[in-house]
Design a protein around this nucleic acid. Sequence first.
DNA 1: TATACAAAACGAGACGACTCGTCTTGACGG
DNA 2: CCGTCAAGACGAGTCGTCTCGTTTTGTATA
Lengths: 194, 194
Amino acid sequence: MSTESANPRYRNERSHKAILDAALKLCREQGFAKTSVDAIAKEAGVGKQTIYRWWPSKAAVLVEAIDRQSAPSPDFPDTGDVLADLRDQMVIVARYFQAAQSSTYREVIGAAQSDPATAQVVLNTLVRPRVEGCRNRLEQARRQGQIRADVVLDDVIELIYAPLYYRLLLGTRPTTPEQVEVILNLAFDGLRPR
Amino acid sequence: MSTESANPRYRNERSHKAILDAALKLCREQGFAKTSVDAIAKEAGVGKQTIYRWWPSKAAVLVEAIDRQSAPSPDFPDTGDVLADLRDQMVIVARYFQAAQSSTYREVIGAAQSDPATAQVVLNTLVRPRVEGCRNRLEQARRQGQIRADVVLDDVIELIYAPLYYRLLLGTRPTTPEQVEVILNLAFDGLRPR
DNA sequence: TATACAAAACGAGACGACTCGTCTTGACGG
DNA sequence: CCGTCAAGACGAGTCGTCTCGTTTTGTATA
């Protein structure tokens, strides 16, 4: 029986940070799959039980580490031009997906496919909060008549961001800034001949 | 050194089929991650080496099994109405993604995130051949003036299919047939106010 | 056509290396 | 004195390789 209480009051912040840093470092060097919990503990100079006391799995550690690592997310910009603002934010995502460091994120999403608990924490910690900023910006744009009034905003968000994730996870093509332009062009102007 | 030659001429088709069937059955029952190669071998009444002789990994076995399982892909329909044809094909995909059996596909894509060889075989065996049928249909539609002439067809394909994969892999929302309608509506008519 | 033979695949399972998540120990600190 | 801590032992399970002895397959020969 694992009646670990894990009272945050007693948490050692020094170890906490060391674990997150060690996890990111090892995953950067050798990938998420080949990084064992034992190795993270050793690298962090920490007992393995200390990791399992505070996180349910290796993936959960990296979700927190990735979240902390990501820029403190300066809320979605609002220059008045929704197309330009979307482009700026999507280019940031596209560049991140192209960078080597994103492969840890990629692998964590992969692990989530076989572990519902990981899927939950990825969705709630990494995806949902960032989607929310985008939704707010789109709401403003809709009020200003820059996008159709009859759309569901979550549908719009997925339409434009999904191609980036599709390429990240299926590896069809790289996610270049130019592709962001193409996606937005198609999504805004539509596929019908003009 | 593993100098297995594995000449297909000597392949035992009885075992071949038994392995694919056993793999699908066990993954259906307990998931891909919890299904070991030993278990597949036992279930198929086969030596483990027989599996490793013909496939490089568990994931590769399931890619072949999933590919064989999928309907013999009656090429993309062409009724003259590209929007209707896309809807029909996408609804099939959306329904598959909603069905329980798709979780094996989902997990294999997950495993591919940590194994480039698996990613390659997923892309080449499962994704590319099916994308090709769609591309041909879109080419015909473009010739007939049903979609803009200035688009890259692969961009169009990803724009409309990516939202389904996004939901499958991130688990944001279910992929209902109604959502297919929404996606096509947004993609064809565009986001700009009319 | 029938027989003989070599090569390769076959079922079964042993093997070492590794990882998992839990459990134990004794020291430390508020 | 309590809970956390570092360290590491532990059993269970998986991986991919290797080794048995047997059976199947394709081909050459009579």
